[in-house]
């Protein structure tokens, strides 16, 4: 394998070291993929096959029973629409607010800049679930319980800090000369943001957008606390309720539901993965 001409001892060490990396990578792959595979595989099984020992990885009697149950679930499409609508609106608003804020923080010096930036950073250590108590009280006063507005306001507020932070970092790395060049062209601020900043800072902006969208898509405590009916509830809530309503669990149905709630995220991630990993390993989170 190795063509090293050094002593056999160090050659063995090199081999071990080389393999150690792949052993850890193998663990990483199994650890990451196993829960997905088991869920996806079981979502295509019949209720009988779920109980078969030894278990089958590829279903022998392939069944769409779980998916039929999930799609036929009362209000399924409504929940889908709600999730897409809320996650979409949240992402657009957060990006708008975050880009403006980041432009302010990254490119302007002003009084109280430091403390205000800290104001944006610190809320990241607020436990989201903890906010349900005070926010419930306030939304009830405003008559917003069980409305899209309550969820979107709560998601935007909890999404803005991270997004602003990431985009500020990304904008900070845009070379200053480019800005001056654009200024001499007499470009307006919007053009300037759109044509200079956003393209250069794209991995950061996409990372912020992805994390915001994913957070809103997946959010659970706020939906649990601020909704009282199916009109505005989202997919994670239904997944949670599936369990409560079933006596003996219909696992193919539950697994099909899991697959259907995570598949849009995985598809989006496959398209954006390059930017997101780059954004996250470029120190965007620090």
């Amino acid at each position: 394998m190795s063509t090293h001409t050094t002593r056999p001892m160090s050659q063995a060490l090199v081999a071990v070291k080389k393999h150690l990396v792949w052993v850890v990578i193998a663990i990483l792959v199994i650890w990451t993929v196993l829960p997905f595979i088991w869920t996806v595989s079981s979502s295509f099984k019949s209720t009988m096959e779920i109980y078969r020992v030894p278990p089958t990885l590829i279903p022998r009697d392939f069944s769409l029973h779980g998916y039929q149950g999930a799609v036929g679930f009362e209000g399924f499409w409504r929940y889908w629409f709600n999730t897409i609508f809320i996650a979409g609106s949240t992402t657009i608003l957060v990006l708008f607010i975050g880009v403006l804020g980041a432009y302010g923080f990254a490119r302007h010096a002003f009084w109280l800049r430091g403390p205000l930036l800290l104001c944006i950073l610190v809320p990241r250590i607020l436990p989201r679930a903890g906010l349900i108590v005070p926010l419930y009280v306030r939304f009830a006063e405003m008559g917003l319980i069980n409305t899209y507005a309550a969820l979107i306001i709560a998601y935007v507020a909890s999404g803005v800090p991270l997004a602003t932070w990431i985009i500020t970092g990304a904008f900070g790395a845009v070379p200053k000369d480019l800005e001056d060049a654009a200024k001499m062209d007499g470009a307006s601020m919007w053009k300037h943001l759109w044509h200079v900043y956003i393209p250069i800072a794209l991995p950061g902006v996409i990372t912020a957008a992805t994390l915001t969208a994913v957070d809103a898509w997946n959010e659970f405590p706020f939906v649990l606390a601020f909704t009282t009916g199916p009109q505005v509830r989202t997919l994670p809530y239904v997944l949670y309720m599936l369990r409560a309503t079933e006596g003996i669990e219909d696992w193919p149905l539950v697994n099909a539901f899991v697959v259907l709630t995570i598949i849009p995220i995985i598809i989006a991630y496959l398209r954006l993965e390059k930017h997101v990993v780059k954004g996250m390993t470029a120190g965007a989170l620090k």
Binding site: T32, P35, V214, W217, N218, E219, F220, P236, Y237, L239, Y240, V258, T261, I262, I265, I266, Y269
Partner: peptide, 9 residues
């Protein structure tokens, strides 16, 4: 990838 999955899932 797992980070993108909801807590409920």
């Amino acid at each position: 990838l797992p980070y993108l999955i909801s807590g409920v899932a």
